[in-house]
Simulated assay, not measured.
Amino acid sequence: MDFSKLLEVYPGVTAVIGSGGKTSLLRRLAAELPGTVLLCTTTHIRPFEEYPLLTAPTPQTIRDTLATHRVLCLGTPCENGKLTAPTLSVETLATLADHVLVEADGSRQLPLKAHDAHEPVIPAVSRQVICVVGASGFGKPIRESVHRLERFCVLTGAAASDPVTPEQAAKAILAEQLCDAVFLNQIDTEAQRSLADRFAAALGGSGLRIAAGSLRAGSGWLYPDI
């Protein structure tokens, strides 16, 4: 499965938000996309150890390194071995490579999330924003599976003790209006397909590109605009 084609990732800046597989999707897209790729964040990420890391490069350093390495990771070292935003602006990075992939959100490793007013940090030059959703949060109490649970409850009208439904996750996405495409990850078994179908149906008519599947298994499919 080519996830870059499934999600129609074009040259330029692509921001990835949400939860439940953002880093895995970025890693997959970097491997699949043709041309040169820069991986970075506007919040915090772990370095992509399979790619060279540049922590304070000049534009020329990036050009020179891309001549021998198709994919680079850029960022400023911070606490706990993580990276924060690179020293160069995303606008500048977009002039140096075919693709700039930006992790623009944090989720505290929970499968689902809503967004406070200060997030996500989406670069203004982004051509596309992909929201990742983790299906492993479905059926679990909101308080256990959702980052920014108070905001999620406001958006959905649910209580923190309620189990998360696919329809609630879709309702929050529609209310926030932050993305162009949605990928429901962690549909790892055929038995979970009905959850994906419900999620897609609840997003129907939104104009969003809706896909589901499993990054771990390398499988995915696209839903029509229902």
Rank of each mutant, 00 (worst) to 15 (best):
S145A: 11
L195K: 03
L195W: 00
A160K: 15
S145R: 00
A160P: 14
F152G: 03
A175P: 04
G157P: 00
R198V: 05
H115N: 15
T189V: 03
Q109G: 01
H118F: 13
A200F: 02
L178D: 10
G137C: 11
A117K: 15
S194P: 04
L184P: 11
T156K: 02
D162F: 00
G137T: 09
H147F: 04
V146S: 04
Q186G: 07
P111L: 12
V132H: 01
I130C: 01
K113N: 03
A200G: 10
P141Q: 10
V154G: 04
A201C: 08
C131W: 01
H147V: 11
K113T: 10
Q177T: 13
R108E: 08
I122C: 10
A159H: 04
T156Q: 06
G137I: 14
A191F: 03
L184K: 00
K113S: 09
A117M: 06
P166F: 02
A175I: 07
H147D: 08
L195P: 01
L195A: 06
L149P: 09
G134E: 15
Q109E: 08
R127K: 15
A196E: 09
L203I: 11
Q109K: 15
K171D: 07
P163S: 12
S145L: 00
C153R: 00
S107C: 05
G137D: 05
S145I: 12
L208N: 07
P166A: 12
S136N: 09
C131G: 03
R108M: 12
E190G: 01
R148M: 12
I187P: 10
L112S: 04
T189L: 02
R151I: 12
L155K: 00
A117H: 12
S136K: 15
G205N: 14
A191R: 01
G137P: 12
I187S: 02
P166R: 14
E150Q: 14
A170D: 03
L174T: 06
